[in-house]
């Protein structure tokens, strides 16, 4: 039997909002330590990896490893019935389950809703994501990053990200004209979620499709900060921590000069 009880149902709502527009069906791998989800968009340009450790749950029981093929639209419909402060319980048999139960308990205990969602067969294999030493890490406000991606998509469909020692520049151009947004490395890190820290090993200059970045920033409500990791010959990584018990990591392949 797999059973996991989350005190703050709102977190699961946010996680679904973060993945459902990028990956319709995803494999939720549940083992004794954590729930991990990995899925690629249909064009294989972007990948999302979500990890939520057992410690995030009020109660977590996983007698045998089980993989739940979830349709994220169905799951999202159920979670739309949940309030942020509802308790959410996920339950599934651990011998090739064909469905998963979700129970929502209102905070005052007066309302209990239970749903059963059919699991889907997904035959995508898990990708091997190599450990990479990145040339640059940019940590910044997640709201700021969402704003930059939204504003720049008015000017073009791609953003060029260039990192130097002192700053990170986001540029986009199209028929409207050219836009550059430069963030300077914050000298003083007084309020972490408002400062920008650039950790640079060597300069990077990469271009990415804004359409995907604007899908990634749906995870903004999950964390005040976001970390971008960049290297010339590697996909961009956009990471949102889930408190200290997990993360949502997006990987995006760059656009390259012909």
């Amino acid at each position: 039997m797999f059973e996991a009880k989350l005190q703050q149902g709102g977190l699961l709502k946010k996680i679904l909002e973060s993945v459902k527009d990028l990956v319709v069906d995803g494999l939720w791998d549940c083992d004794g330590a954590a729930i991990t989800l990995q899925g690629m968009d249909s064009s294989h340009v972007a990948l999302v990896e979500m990890l939520l450790r057992a410690e995030a749950f009020e109660h977590y029981r996983c007698d045998r490893n089980v993989t739940l093929g979830m349709n994220h639209n169905h799951l999202s419909k159920i979670l739309k019935c949940a309030n942020n402060d509802d308790i959410v319980i996920l339950k599934a048999a651990d011998q090739n389950p064909d469905s998963c139960s979700l129970i929502l308990e209102s905070k005052n205990g007066e309302k209990t809703s239970d749903f059963v969602v059919s699991l889907v067969r997904i035959d995508t294999d898990q990708l091997g994501i190599p450990e990479t030493e990145y040339s640059a890490h940019v940590k910044m406000s997640s709201g700021e990053f969402q704003r930059i991606c939204r504003d720049l998509s008015q000017f073009g469909d791609a953003v060029q990200i260039t990192c130097s020692k002192q700053d990170v520049k986001f540029s986009s151009s199209g028929e409207t004209g050219k836009a550059n947004i430069t963030l300077t490395h914050s000298a003083t890190v007084d309020k972490e979620e408002e400062s920008v820290t650039v950790d640079l090993k060597e300069p990077v200059d990469l271009t990415f499709a804004l359409r995907f970045l604007n899908l990634f920033t749906k995870a903004t409500p999950i964390s005040d900060t976001v970390t971008l990791s960049l290297s010339q010959e590697a996909p961009l990584v956009v990471e949102y921590k889930i408190g200290d018990s997990g993360h949502i990591r997006y990987f995006l392949a760059p656009k390259i000069q012909e």
Partner: peptide, 14 residues
Amino acid sequence: SKRQITLSRFFKLP
């Protein structure tokens, strides 16, 4: 203009 490449260049598709 620049061409979008896929992740299969970077991550081994098993």
